[in-house]
Amino acid sequence: MKRFLLWGVFIGAILFHTAAESAADWEALKEAAKNLRTVKAEFLQKRFLQILKTPLLSEGRFFFDATGGLRWEYQKPLRSLMLQKGDQIRGYHFADGVWKPDMTQAVEARRLVLGEIRQWIQGRYEESKTFKFLFVPGPPAKVVLTPMEGIAKFINRIEIFISAEPGVIQRVEIEEPGDSRTVIEFRNVEINSRLPAEIFDKP
């Protein structure tokens, strides 16, 4: 549950801020989120662990549709995928040349996470029962998320850095206990572009 909540935080924060029209004004960010229809982006994830000298690198892409679709996909080095369409949530991993359904009990956890994400996308950050937030105008402009009781033993804080380009997030940094952290950098972000309908249906 907790690990999917963290993962959901990444996505929720990304989606909310990619929808923004101005990086410098919190009210403008919230207002811009209301106009969000779709988001498409690529990402590079760097996983820093105390045990490793160099970070684990993962590349992927995600797609979001405000009507209820979400696709979060890792393409390298492991191929894995989470698909949501409406209430239906499915996970896959790629092995032996085919996509295989995940054997996971986390569907309900993912459903809760995605529900929270939708609150954020709609600009209702303050309704989160998981994180307190602070908007820092910068530069660099960023949002700092601090966990409330319960999740605090899994995560110290999250910082979301907003790009100088209006409406685009630059990166997300997640600090965890034990000198571990994750940095996700985004590129080729497209807001409100047309997405293939089947992108949320099948791997």
Partner: peptide, 24 residues
């Protein structure tokens, strides 16, 4: 599908092992 990290020191018969999700 999972990610496995192992660190070992044969002279001490020591292994440090982590299992991670694909998300890290």
């Amino acid at each position: 599908s999972l990610i496995g990290i192992t660190e070992g020191e044969p002279s001490e018969q020591k292994i440090h092992s982590l299992l991670l999700t694909p998300e890290g």
